[in-house]
Design a protein around this nucleic acid. Sequence first.
RNA 1: GGGCCUAUAGCUCAGUCGGUAGAGCAACGGACUUUUAAUCCGUGGGUCGACGGUUCGAGCCCGUCUGGGCCCA
Length: 502
Amino acid sequence: MTTENTPAVEDDLPEQLRIRREKRAGLLERGVEPYPVAVDRTTSLKAIREKYTGLDIDVATGDIESLTGRIIFKRDTGKLCFATLREGDGTELQAMLSLDKVGQDALDAWKSDIDLGDIVSVTGEIITSKRGELSILANSWKLASKSLRPLPNDHKPMSEETRVRMRYVDLIVRPEARAAARMRPQVMRSLRDTFNNYDFIEVETPMLQVMHGGAAARPFKTFSNAYDMDLYMRIAPELFLKRCVVGGIERVFEINRNFRNEGADSSHSPEFAMVESYMSYGDWRSIADVTRTLIQNAAMAVAGSHVVTHADGSQKDLGGTWREISLYDAISNGVGETVTALTPYADLKKYAEKLGMKIDPKWVTGKLAEEIFEHVASDQLIEPTFVMGYPVDTSPLVRAHRETPGVVEKWDLYVDGFELATGYSELIDPVIQRDRLVEQAQLGAKGDLEAMQVDEDFLRAMEFGMPPMGGMGMGVDRLLMALTGLGIRETILFPLVKPEVE
RNA sequence: GGGCCUAUAGCUCAGUCGGUAGAGCAACGGACUUUUAAUCCGUGGGUCGACGGUUCGAGCCCGUCUGGGCCCA
């Protein structure tokens, strides 16, 4: 099938790419398949490492195995060659090829045909070398897949751009990339296990929506040919999850992607994984407890402890109960005046100007208060902190605080200075909800691109009666950031990058 | 959106005052039966992001554009 195609070797290629293509062609000419349909493999490198721990130096076990791996280092000497094989999880094992075991032809072929980056199968005895290195001493070997491109220097980290553009290479060479890729599913499993312990039911709700809602954000817009209408990629699943609660799914959650047509930086990605959940007969405090348990269990799942170690070596304690601060108390302390949700816009503006802040004239009163908070309190948000009590005019889906006027029962959870999750006592009065959404629509009509739309079907669902409940949303990518200290592009396997120009 | 930094060999990076393009790893040829980023001898490899300008002469100076990073909003 592939043996008859002897490819033309492009001679405008860089030297190293050209040479490897020539080697592939040479193999085919000699009847050696560079991409065989199967090679021998009896077990994994990891299983070998686990089985033969603590062997003395220069031991021959007598056990014959067939092992596969990508060649990461190659040390050819005259009649005895060494190579380091690496498999997907980063486990490495040394392969040894000696003249007296494999013969002259196979040894010569090994030296001339095999390059760094090739995947090979080696069959032989498991031994330790004279230096004590656990190894497979080959009786035979076979090429499993020829690499036509040289691996990057394994000893120098790739630039950030190359890592993101060629994640497949990043995963081959960089242990941190392998660890990050494997940590995400561990966290996902932990989240689902924790929800399961609380009897939450997982659902999937639409990503393509007729109308976007559930958050303040600009959506991606697309078009359905079949229905001849505009559709939006969802910015949040909230309004659908609440429909579930109306229908009697009393504890519900979804883990899925949201899309927001906004700027990208070290903590924002246009598409991001979000966990969102609603708990009937709960409120902002009970859902805060659920959220803390989710995060602490995730830390336990990946770190075996509530204390996690970040990429820079620092340790962060996510254990215990977490600090709570009041948004308006923090603002008051920051500006040296008593500020509440009833403080007029003009006063807030005065305080903000005194702090040297730039004020966007589009900000409503509550937004200005939140901005002042972030300005004065950002250094207090490193350890896990629930910021309690937000202004009503920026939170159209949250119910009013049971004591404090102008404030809603909403918290934001901050870790390492960024917002990790948010939780509410949900607004369940359909009449008030309609008023809030109509207000939003008016802002939208005035040009606020992040304003919500009036979702009549959602309001109809509410009018059937929605139980009191607490709700929360948390960014999965950001949870990974909090657990690892990595930037968001390191927690996402294939973040969006602009195409390379030729 | 604004400011700053950045783009040179497959990878990671140097490149002085504007005067023939450099290193390490990788590659190619040779030696070597216990190497661990093997070592030793030898060799090749470049549209210096793109386009334009200044100059006798540009990797370097100027302008525009593109990609990437950081900070601010």
